[in-house]
Structure formats: structure tokens, C-alpha cells
Simulated assay, not measured.
Amino acid sequence: MDRLTTLIKRFQLRVGPVDPAAARLLIVAEPGSAAISFDDGIGGGGALLFCTEPVSGRETHQTCADKGQKILLAMGVSWSRSTNPFLAALPDCIRYPLQDDPAACELVRLIVQEDRGGRCGADSVVSRLGEILMVRLLRDQIARGSAEPGLIAGLGDPRLSRAIVAIHDHPGKPWSNDDLACEAGLSRSRFAEVFAAEVGETPMGYLRRWRLILARQDLVRGDRVDAVARRYAYGSSEGFTRAFRKAHGVAPVSLRKAVA
């Protein structure tokens, strides 16, 4: 069961150069107080820091300085903050220690070598390796779960995650509560209770919200309203339009006209 790939593809995870004005940052930081340099190897308190809210370079350096760390490398991250339910569920700043992940340490070493080497294609290599680091960090977040209701907590639950992944991967299927409870291996009543407690909304509520997030993406891309309505199991364009307007505050046809 893959809890990340659909989210990564749908919201186009990208890692690249830092926007000088503001960006969500993936930072490789190492302790400022310890005599650790790139040549000594990453570890001994080194960490990845992912800032999920846009911050300026000055704010980033100040945050690391306050934590007694120095920045080895910073990369910009794009992952559709405005509609991405996974990103919205993350805390403002995530710290992923590197000392217990030798593979991540080696990735960091390769990234820094490419960044400093000035060789052909270095930007592409740094971007691809940075995306791998992001996946490792996100996996760790799922494994840790969350004390707060939301998508992270739901994906961290081995029962609920099966139902959530089914929703993510097959949004056009005419799911019922019974179907999703079966995916989770729970009774309907127990599934509804646990889902609401962990995710913070009902299973059908999350299904509707996910469908309408995807529908917005498709409309912005230029897809027809009636085709999108059918794709996400709406019985009519009118019913889809009402649901879409309630969720997004605009009529679906207005988004399609904007790209026509």
C-alpha cells in the first residue's frame, strides 16, 4: 500500500533553487557548536528541516541560529500548499534527524557535492535527490503519526490508511461507508467513529473534499465541467456545480473560462 505516490503526483512535488523572496524550504542543517563540516560527514546532530510555511532567507538563518545550527544547504520546495491536504496537516517546521539514516546522509553528501561542483546538469541532479530526501522525510512523518486530528494521523493508522489510500487512488468509485469500512477491516460504526476521531471529519466528508480538490485541478487544466462531474461520481453537472461552489466559492465554469 502506497500512502504517498498519489499525493506526490497530484500536487507535483518539486525541489529546486530557493526563491529569493520567499519559499518553502528544505534545509540541511548541522550543529553550529560542533566541529562538523561537510568533509567530516553529515550527522552528529545534523538534520533536515522542512519549513512548510513560506519564509525569507533571513528568517531561515535566524531560526537555525536560534537552534544553535548552521545551514549547509537550502532548497526550495513546491507542493501546492493551497489545496494539498497532506501539506496542510503538517506543522510549520519539521525536523528530521540524520544520524540514524545513513542513506539520507549519503544523499545529502551527493547533493552538496553537486551543488558545489558546478558541473553540467547539477541543478537537475540536486532537484531529483532533493525530492528523494523529501519522500524520506514525509515517510517519517507518517510513521510518527500525529496527536492532532488530520490526514497525517489518518495515514499513520494502519486501518484507516487503507481506506484513505483507496479514496486517493480511486476517487471516481461510488464509495459507500460500508465499502470504506471493509477496506479498513472495521465495522461500519467503528470505522466512522475512528475516522472522525483521527481525521477530524467523516469518511464521506473527506471523500467529497478530496474529489472537489481534484476537480479544481482538472478544471484549471481546462477539462469540461460535465466530464469532471462524471469523473468524480456526481450524478449531474448541476449537483457538482452546487457542491463545487460551496467548497471553493466559485462556479466550476468560471475556472475553466479563465484558462480557455
Rank of each mutant, 00 (worst) to 15 (best):
R242I: 11
R24W: 12
S80W: 12
G205P: 03
I142G: 06
T60I: 09
G200V: 06
S176F: 07
D115R: 10
T83P: 06
V108S: 02
F38T: 10
V259F: 08
L151Y: 07
A34C: 12
S56T: 14
D115E: 06
N84S: 14
A35N: 13
G154M: 02
M1A: 15
R231I: 06
V55E: 01
G154N: 02
L25V: 12
G185E: 09
V165L: 10
C51L: 15
M1F: 14
I71H: 06
G205H: 10
L90V: 07
V125E: 10
R109G: 05
S127D: 05
I164Q: 07
V112K: 01
G68P: 07
I167H: 01
G76T: 09
N84T: 12
R116V: 00
Y96G: 02
S189A: 15
K246S: 08
S127F: 08
A247W: 02
Q62T: 09
L155R: 05
D40V: 14
D66F: 01
F244L: 00
V225K: 01
I42D: 06
V55R: 01
G32V: 05
L107C: 06
A34V: 11
V250Y: 00
G68F: 09
D2N: 14
C105L: 14
V126D: 03
E30K: 13
G41T: 11
N177S: 14
V15A: 04
R242V: 05
R109I: 01
A89Q: 05
G16A: 13
A215G: 11
S237Q: 04
T5F: 04
A247C: 13
P91T: 04
G185Y: 09
L25R: 00
D226G: 03
I71F: 05
H248K: 06
K173D: 14
C64L: 11
L25W: 00
G41C: 04
G150R: 09
G57P: 10
K67L: 15
A258D: 14
P171A: 05
R119T: 10
A229D: 04
V135K: 05
S187G: 14
S127E: 04
F240T: 04
I142P: 08
I152P: 00
L72Q: 07
G154C: 11
S82N: 11
L155H: 03
L138H: 00
E114H: 04
K257W: 11
R139G: 13
L133G: 00
S176E: 12
I71C: 09
Q113P: 02
E238H: 11
D226R: 15
A181I: 02
G249M: 00
Q99I: 14
D123P: 10
C105I: 15
R231M: 12
R188W: 01
R144D: 08
I94K: 03
D92Y: 13
G154T: 05
V55F: 07
W210T: 12
G121T: 14
Q217Y: 07
E53R: 15
R128M: 12
R58V: 15
E201C: 13
H170N: 13
F244G: 03
R221P: 06
C64W: 02
P102K: 12
G45P: 04
R221G: 09
G117M: 10
Q99T: 14
D19T: 10
R208Q: 15
G130T: 02
